[in-house]
Design a protein around this nucleic acid. Sequence first.
DNA 1: TATTCGTGGGC
DNA 2: TGCCCAAGAAT
Length: 349
Amino acid sequence: MKSIDTRGFQQDLLGWYHNNKRDLPWRKDGDPYKIWVSEIMLQQTRVDTVIPYFNHFMRLFPTIKDLAEADEETVLKAWEGLGYYSRARNLHTAVNEVQEHYGGVIPADPVSIRKLKGIGPYTAGAISSIAFHYPEPAVDGNVMRVLARIFTICDDIAKNGARKRFEAIVREIIAENEAADFNQALMELGAMICTPRDPDCHSCPVAEHCYAREEGVQAYLPVKAKKKPPKNVYLDTYVVVNAGGELLIEQRSDTGLLAKLWQFPMTEKEQEQEKLQDEVSYVQHVKHVFSHLVWEMDVYLLQIGEEEEQAWLEANERRKFVHPDDLTLYPFPVSHQKIIDGAIADNMN
DNA sequence: TATTCGTGGGC
DNA sequence: TGCCCAAGAAT
């Protein structure tokens, strides 16, 4: 391990952060609840994407108590479009844990924080340091990238065990009395200056401490293995309309992909097939790309009579007919938004 | 340890 | 366009 001037590094980093930190809604006060919510939303999600969701979320659920007492479906609706929906369900579970076990007050120690649902090593460190000023590491992708360059570390940061080495480094170089700013400064630097592609070394406040810069290898760090390509899934999707003009929707499984969100009935097919013909009219093809799979959806419109309603409902306990205007009450995945738009447009005819 | 969890933006 | 990426956690 190469060594740096730790005190000089801290001063240069903290000085830059003081003058350049972004004015973000969760930085306006030190409310641990706001910091918690923001950290969950920010997992694998950009700041610009999170800001409107955070502001809306705080109007709906201003306090832990408000969030704990809300229906899970209401929380999921507030999360609609943000992705990784288990974050919303786990956060809802965790705030109820705080209500029951901690009298509604977020525990201040890192060990207790880490035990809450949906809070892993990074988020525990982030809340502990930012909200409660413990000198704990908060190692995310930014921090691994920055430190890989500062110390020319060639470990594959895509590997699961990589984080621990960086946590050990942070424990050595963290500004003990300014842990909140130090951790945020490392992340801010990674987001604004020490970016994945084309890092702006000329503007970097800690360039003189950076071995990658000195050796001219910043473009080759960090090392990160490529992930395998997504798998294709072929689906028939049915917009079923009854005699009353209502649409058939169903709630997805309590676990797995898009858990507990709503959708139009879908059936998976072995592979890409000929379009269906009788009884149904083909509407559109919708392609939706997830992290690890791709949905190829053939969407069909199906008008049914009263006698057919029961059969469609009995095929799945989690189905119901709803008026088109009421679709906005349910959390749908983004993959279904354009189907909804089309379905409502069709219903106007 | 590797895979499963979304989505939108940038080039 | 296709690919990479973003303040990760759960399994």
